[in-house]
Amino acid sequence: MNLCTLMAEIISAPQLRYTQDNQTAITEMTIAFPGQRAEDPPQKLKVIGWGNLAQEVQEKYKTGDRVLIEGRLTINTVDRPEGFKEKQAELTAQRIHLLSDLGTVNIPQPAASPEPSTPVVAAAAAPSYPAAQSAPPPSPEAEVDYDDIPF
């Protein structure tokens, strides 16, 4: 299964076009997301949307929007005028969510502890499991000799 989810910023406005038979809408845009390390430059990726999603992207999203995109990642090989082939990644979007539409998650802060050296433990956050019981050591009589078992 090929599923990719990215949180990114739209850096080029979505451009709507249609297939040759004018039946299917296609939208292309470029997004950027942070590099793997803080000092790495942002990575850019082309995103394509088809059909109703393409029209929705054209109407609803613009440059500078922060979005969450779900889709399929593909690698295309392109012939360059310099005489070599270049591989380019492309994301075919299946769902796009504007991050402001998702709202914010309110995470309750723990109450202040009367003693700063005492750690605060949230009992509701941690599941309780029964205490693990150690197995009794195997008895010498129950030991199996695996060399005697035929294969």
Rank of each mutant, 00 (worst) to 15 (best):
Ser100Asn: 03
Ile69Gln: 02
Ile11Asp: 06
Ala8Asn: 02
Asp79Arg: 11
Thr104Phe: 15
Val105Trp: 07
Gln36Met: 10
Asp148Ser: 13
Gln43Val: 12
Leu53Asn: 00
Leu68Glu: 05
Gly49Val: 01
Leu6Gln: 02
Ile26Leu: 12
Gln43Leu: 12
Leu102Phe: 04
Lys85Ile: 03
Val105Lys: 06
Ala13Cys: 08
Glu90Asn: 02
Glu9His: 06
Phe33Gly: 07
Pro119Gly: 06
Thr63Met: 14
Lys46Ala: 02
Lys85Thr: 04
Ala142Arg: 09
Leu45Pro: 00
Pro116Cys: 11
Pro150Arg: 11
Arg66Glu: 10
Gln88Tyr: 08
Thr77Leu: 15
Ile26Asn: 00
Val47Gln: 01
Lys60Val: 15
Ala89Phe: 08
Glu39Thr: 14
Gly64Gln: 08
Pro42Tyr: 11
Ala126His: 12
Glu86Trp: 06
Asp101Gln: 03
Phe33Asp: 08
Glu82Gln: 13
Asp101Pro: 02
Asp79Ala: 14
Ile149Cys: 09
Arg37Glu: 14
Val57Met: 03
Lys85Gly: 03
Glu82Pro: 04
Ala25Asn: 01
Leu99Asn: 03
Gly83Thr: 07
Arg80Asn: 15
Ser12Ile: 06
Asp65Asn: 15
Glu70Thr: 14
Asp101Cys: 02
Pro138Met: 01
Pro108Glu: 14
Asp101Tyr: 05
Ala13Pro: 13
Lys85Phe: 06
Leu102Val: 03
Ile75Pro: 04
Ala112His: 13
Gly49Trp: 00
Ala32Arg: 04
Pro137Ala: 07
Gln43Lys: 11
Leu73Cys: 07
Glu82Met: 08
Thr30Ile: 11
Lys87Phe: 08
Arg72Tyr: 09
Ile149Leu: 15
Pro14Met: 11
Ile107Gly: 06
Ala38Ser: 13
Val67Ala: 02
Gln58Phe: 11
Leu16Glu: 01
Pro138Glu: 04
Leu53Cys: 04
Pro150Ser: 09
Thr24Met: 06
Glu70Tyr: 11
Phe84Cys: 02
Ala8Asp: 07
